[in-house]
Write a protein that binds this DNA or RNA. Structure first.
Lengths: 121, 121
DNA sequence: TATGGTAGTTACTAAACCGTAAGTATATGC
DNA sequence: GCATATACTTACGGTTTAGTAACTACCATA
């Protein structure tokens, strides 16, 4: 879904970095654009497309769909369709997604500290 | 240095996200492109421009400079110039930068786990 | 028959990012 | 006088990402 040309230098660089550094691989899964916000909201108990759209105001439907799909194929969330009318689709964190939570919290705390440090200057 | 047009929607979205989420703010400081790799190498004792260039092979000089500058203005590293010939410049982690280290390690561990999870499918 | 609600998809365009290659300054060694 | 070394800077153009707006499908209700 990230529409890369497979022979571009950027593509090759990214491959190389992700291959020999699990940390960069981790960031490629959860560190992109709206993904942190989505994961955050999910830990707060938000599970449906429409709810997320309202909870993360400036996100567009396109971006929300795209990121949810990627999180799904990367094994961080699951997607369950309930064949009702109007349709209902629910997203839930997998064990892998859940195991990220404590790290998210720590980075959050670090971010607060960094913000203060920066503000002082 | 991230050359944003201040009236673009992307710019406004990013501002909004960083303002109300310290986590996304944190990612904006250390989660971009080559920054993790740079920070990683610095914790391993690499302090000079040329060393980093060699330690992170596919990085270009332009990107290395750009990221070092951003890390500096964000308070994660310091830059010290020694007026010698040929010139010598040394980079070091600040306390804020150092305090990131345990989190980097955890994300690294998580990345390894995620990689295995993905490989199984 | 028209409206509303869910959960999307698609085409188009604007913005941001990244890599390449060339150039800067200074001094030492050959 | 030319190459080498360090640590950059700049212009340019291609690549990638993000946002907008319009559109889809299904059924229930008024």
């Amino acid at each position: 879904m990230p529409q890369r040309k497979e022979n571009s230098v950027s593509f090759e660089n990214e491959q190389a970095l992700e291959t020999d550094c699990p940390f960069i691989f981790a960031l490629s899964l959860m560190g992109k654009r709206w993904k942190p916000a989505i994961l955050w909201k999910m830990t707060e108990g938000i599970h449906r497309f429409g709810e997320m759209k309202r909870a993360i105001p400036p996100i567009s439907e396109k971006m929300l769909t795209q990121h949810l799909r990627e999180l799904e194929t990367d094994g961080l969330i699951t997607r369950t369709i309930y064949p009702e009318m109007p349709p209902r689709v629910e997203y839930a964190l997998t064990n892998l997604g859940l195991s990220l939570q404590p790290i998210l919290e720590q980075l959050n705390t670090w971010g607060e500290k960094a913000k203060k440090t920066k503000a002082k200057k």
